[in-house]
Amino acid sequence: MAEADVTNRKPQDEVQALFEPQGVREEQTPRTDAEGHGERRPAAAPASPESAPPQAEAALAPIEEPVVSPHPYATKLREQRLAKEASGHARRDTLLYLDGVNKSFDGFKAINKLSLVVARGEMRAIIGPNGAGKTTMMDIITGKTRPDSGEVFFNGDVDLTHHDEAAIASMGIGRKFQKPTVFESHTVEDNIRLSLAGPRSVLEALFHRKDQAERDRIDAILETTRLTEKRKLLAASLSHGQKQWLEIGMLLAQDPELLLVDEPVAGMTDAETEETARLLREIARTRSVVVVEHDMSFVRELGVKVTCLHEGSVLAEGPLDQVSADPKVIEVYLGR
C-alpha cells in the first residue's frame, strides 16, 4: 500500500494547491499554537477591545451611539448589548465556539454544559468513551440536532443554531460520518463531483456543464485520496477503508473551512490508519479540523491538542500526554 502511494504521489506543490481554500474567504489567521489557545476558555472574561482585530472594531463602531435615554432599563439593555458584542469579540478570532451547550434526549443529558473553542487553522482531537456525546456534539454543530440551550458560533459571529444542515455545510463546515455514507450507486468520480464546492441550486444542477477546471479538481482530489484507479467504479464496490477515504475526498471537494471527522480510521488496517493520519495532517495545514477518534496511536500520530469528553462535557483538555496522565481520564476512559 505505502509503496504504491509513493509512486502515485504528485509533486508536493500540486497537492498543496489542493488544500488551499478555493472560495474567496476572509484572510486566514496564521495557524495558532494549540497550547496558547488552550488557556482561553469560552467562559473567560470578555477580551479587551484593544486585542480585537481592526475590522472588528469597525463593525462595532455604530454601536457607540450617545446614551440618550436616562431610563435605567434602557441603560441596562444597552450595557447588556455591549457586553454581548464584546463577548462576540472574544469569539471573533475563533472559528468554532461552543459555550454552555445542553442537549437532552427524554431527560437523558447527552450534552451537558459543553464548552469548546477551536481556533482558526487548529486541528483538535476529541476522545472519550462511547456515549460521551462526541457524535451528538457534531450533530449540534452541523445543524442536525438543535441544542436545548447554549451558544454555538462559527467564524466569530454566525449563530449556527439558526441554520439548517445545508446552510451550515455551505458556510464551510464539512462532516464525515462515523458510519461511512457515500452515494453507493454513483461512481467514485460522481461522488466527488456532487460534493464539489459551487452553487447549490436545482436549476444550476440541471443545466450544469462539466468543464476542465472541474475535471482537474476531481483528478487532484482522487489523487490525494488514492482513488484514481477506482474512479469509474461504483462506490458500493469500494472496501470499507476506501469508502472512508472517499468520504474524506468528498469533504475536500466541498472545500470547507472546518472539517468534522468522526472516527475516520475505524475498521482500517494499520497502514491505512497511518496514511489517513498523514492525510489529515496535510489537510490541517490550511484548514481547521476536529477529529473524533478512539485509536490512541492514531491520536498520538496527529500530535495535536486533545479534548476528552465525558458524559457530555469536557473532562480534560491539553496535549495528549497531559490528558492521558489525568487521573480522571484514566478513570473514565483509558482504564487503569
Binding site: A166, A169, F177, T181, F183, E184, H186, L194, A205, L206
Partner: peptide, 24 residues
C-alpha cells in the same frame, strides 16, 4: 443524465448525506 439527475439518485440513496454537503 444531468448533474441534477445524479443528485436525485444521491437523494434517493442517502438523503441526509446530500444535506451535509450543502444541497437541499
Amino acid at each position: 443524465r444531468s448533474k441534477l439527475g445524479k443528485l436525485m439518485v444521491a437523494v434517493r440513496d442517502a438523503e441526509s448525506r446530500t444535506r451535509f454537503i450543502g444541497w437541499r
